Amino acid sequence: MMASTPACNPVNRFSSHARCLIMDYFNCLDAFVRVAEVGNFSEVARQLRVSKSVVTSRIKQLEAHVEVPLFHRSTRNVSLSQVGQLYYDECAQLVSRANEIVDGMRSARQAPTGLLRVHGLPGLVVSHMARFLTTFSEKYPGISFDFVVNDEVIDPVKAGYDCALQIFAPISDDLIQRKLFPVHRTFCASPAYLGIHEPIAHPIDLTRHALGLYSRYPSRDKWVFENGEKQCQVELSPAFKSNSVHFLKEIALEGLGVVCLPTIACAEDINEGRLVPVLTDYWLSSYWLSAVYPKTQRNSVRLKLFLDELTLAFPHQPGWDEILASKVSFPPPNAFLGD
C-alpha cells in the first residue's frame, strides 16, 4: 500500500487546522490589545498593515467568543468596557509573553529578524546613530529599522513605535523608561563672534548678547546656573529660538550669536576649535536620554538587543563628554531633571 502523503494524513490535517485556529485567536487578542491601547481602529490597522475591516472583524470575533462587548464605541471615541478593562490586563500580559516565546524560539534557531520602529531625538540620531548602526547591523543583519527623527514627546503605543529615544519622562504610566546616558548642555559661540563682542564672565552677561536657545526645554526662558558655591537664575530673551539644535549650531558657527547646545551635538566642533564654550565655571542641570517603550514590548528580543547594544556603545559618560571633560564643567550626578 502506498504511504499517504502529509496532505492526506488526518493527523496532519487536524494539526494544521488547530494551528490556524490558534493563530486566528492570537491575532484577535493582539488586535484587541492594540485597540485598547491606541483607542483607534484605523491607527491599529495602519500599524498591522491590514484594512480597518480586518481589525473590526477580529474584535467582533473575540467579543462573540467571550459573549460580552469589550468596547464602548461612538463616532469619535473607542473606550474599554468595564469587562474589557479586566480582560485587557490579562490579554496584554498574554500577548507580550507569546511574542517573547516566539522571539526566543526564532533566536534559538537563527539570527533575530524583523523591523524595529524607533522615534529618535535628532541630536542622537543625526550625529551618532549611523555609526552605531554600522556595528549593530554587522552583528544582527536580520533586524531592519524605520527611524522617525524629531523631538516631539510621544506615546509610542498610540503612535505605533517600538520605542522612543527622548530626554523627557514618559507621558503615561503604561510606558517603561530605561535611562541610557546623561545629556549635558553648554553655552558656546564661534571664535569670530567672541573676538568682537564683550566677554562673558557671569551668566548675567548673556543678556547683552544675541542668543540662540532651544524652544522645547520646560524651563522656558528662566535659566539656572550653578558653580558649586551658589546658584544664579537669569531670564534670557533669545534672538533665535528653534526646536532644532543642529540649526542653533549653524547659527553659532556663522557667528550670529551665543547658543546653548547639548554636548552630544557640539563636542566635535568645540574639540576642533570651531566653537568655544563660555561660562565654563558654571553648569546647567542635565537630562537623561531614555528609551521609552510599551510594557507589552518589554520582552521583545529585537528591542532588548537594540537597547543593550546602545548601552554598551553609549555609556554613562559618552565619548563626546570625555573629550570635553577639561573644557566644560559638568553637573554632579544629582543635578538631573526628570529623575
Results as ranks from 00 to 15, higher is better:
Arg106Met: 11
Leu115Ser: 01
Leu116Pro: 01
Ser219Glu: 15
Asp173Arg: 11
Ala36Gln: 03
Ser15Ile: 14
Cys266Ile: 10
Trp283Tyr: 15
Gly338Pro: 02
Tyr287Ile: 02
Glu235Leu: 13
Val78Phe: 06
Leu124Asn: 00
Glu198Leu: 12
Leu121Phe: 09
Ser326Val: 00
Phe132Thr: 06
Val126Asn: 02
Arg274Met: 03
Arg216Lys: 13
Ser4Cys: 09
Cys91Phe: 03
His65Arg: 15
Leu206His: 03
Phe41Arg: 04
Gln166Met: 02
Leu94Phe: 08
Pro112Thr: 06
Val126Ile: 03
Leu324Arg: 00
Glu198Phe: 05
Val102His: 07
His128Gly: 02
Asn27Val: 01
Ala189His: 09
Gly255Trp: 01
Asn334Gln: 12
Glu229Ile: 12
Trp223Tyr: 15
Val33Tyr: 04
Arg208Gln: 15
Ile59Thr: 09
Arg49Leu: 11
Leu115Tyr: 01
Pro182Met: 10
Leu29Ser: 08
Tyr214Pro: 04
Cys163Ala: 14
Ile264Tyr: 07
Pro69Ala: 12
Gln317Thr: 15
Pro10Trp: 12
Cys163Met: 14
Gly84Lys: 07
Leu310Ala: 01
Phe306Glu: 13
Val224Ile: 14
Leu86Phe: 06
Glu198Asn: 09
Ser81Ile: 00
Gln297Pro: 00
Ile251Asn: 03
Arg298Met: 10
Gly319Val: 10
Leu256Phe: 13
Arg185Trp: 11
Ile251Val: 15
Asn299Phe: 14
Ile171His: 00
Lys230Asp: 11
Val276Pro: 03
Val149Trp: 06
Cys91Val: 05
Ala98Asp: 07
Met129Ala: 07
Ser79Pro: 01
Thr207Asp: 07
Lys230Ile: 08
Val157Pro: 00
Asp321Trp: 09
Cys260Gln: 15
Ala291Trp: 06
Arg274Pro: 01
Met129Arg: 00
His246Gln: 05
Ala164Tyr: 01
Ala265Thr: 12
Gln297Glu: 13
Asp281Arg: 08
Pro294Asp: 01
Leu279Gly: 01
Cys8Leu: 13
Ile264Lys: 07
Ser286Pro: 01
Ala92Trp: 04
Lys295His: 12
His128Val: 05
Arg178Cys: 05
Trp223Pro: 03
His65Glu: 11
Lys52Ala: 05
Cys163Ser: 09
Arg34Ala: 15
Lys249Trp: 05
Met2Phe: 15
Leu310Asp: 02
Asp339Arg: 10
Lys60Asp: 07
Thr5Ser: 14
Ser127Cys: 13
Ala108Phe: 12
Leu206Val: 06
Phe225Cys: 08
Leu29Cys: 12
